[in-house]
Computed example of a mutant assay.
Amino acid sequence: MHSPKENTSKRLKDVEISVPIVYGTIAFYLGRRASESQSHKWTVYVRGAKNEDLGPVIKRVIFQLHPSFNNPTRVVESPPFELSECGWGEFEFAISLFFQPDVCDKQLDLYHHLKLYPEDESGLQSTKKPVVIESYDEIVFPDPSESFFARVQTHPAVIVPQMPTSSSENINEKKKGDTKDHQLSQWFMNFSEADELLKLAEAQQQVQAHMHKLKRQLCLMDGLRQISRPSSTDE
């Protein structure tokens, strides 16, 4: 979870605004159209967790490609914050987020590894099913500006606390949302807070099970050492 420092004159104390985001890549194998230098077409992007418009929060995104690309520093000034290219190799992106002036004056740098080939290397690559790698994160803005809060308090991509002045009408307006249709949306992964908590719980259970296993192994080793140790007898 990232917390960029916000710097404005009029701020709401003890208030936090959270913006769930997803960043990742989708790579399609070109099949018969593939060449030695262009085997895949891929798209790298930053999106809302449910593909909402991030324009009210993010001003622009800079994608840093591999130096072998022409003009490897790509700037996207408006949503959707994405770009597509063709290539043959995997590499790591640097993704820099720049926020609206009343949101934050510091950029946020993310990193993502482009993956072209599926985990199962035994099967043939498919031109119909892409390789999708995505990461979920939440950007937290403490003590937000009044203008930022007012602009996003009903926006579906933003988690804001319910203030005493909020009306039920505004809350209902948020349900309408500003979700964008996208040609790749069928491949996007579904992220939610409940899913993330479930993953954390499963990871904790796995760690605990592994610790118990190690303890049993240590106890067994100690027992074997006790058995194999020669007993001392009085002469």
Rank of each mutant, 00 (worst) to 15 (best):
S96N: 13
G87E: 08
R47M: 07
D102M: 07
K115A: 03
H66C: 15
P67M: 15
P80V: 00
D105S: 04
S78A: 13
K115L: 09
P67L: 15
P56W: 02
H112V: 01
F69M: 13
S78N: 08
V75Q: 01
V57N: 13
K50H: 04
Q64K: 04
R60P: 07
R47T: 04
D53A: 02
D102N: 08
W88R: 11
D102Q: 11
H113A: 07
K115Y: 05
W88F: 14
F93W: 03
K115E: 06
L108C: 11
L110Q: 03
V46H: 08
V44D: 09
Q64M: 10
F91R: 00
E90V: 08
N70Y: 07
G55E: 14
E52Y: 02
P56V: 06
G89D: 05
Q64R: 10
R74E: 07
H112F: 02
A94Q: 01
E52D: 10
R60Q: 15
H112W: 02
S84G: 10
S96W: 14
G48C: 05
L83I: 04
R60N: 14
D109S: 01
P101G: 05
K59M: 12
F99W: 01
Q107G: 12
P56L: 05
C86K: 05
Q107H: 15
I62Q: 13
E82V: 03
N70H: 09
L54C: 02
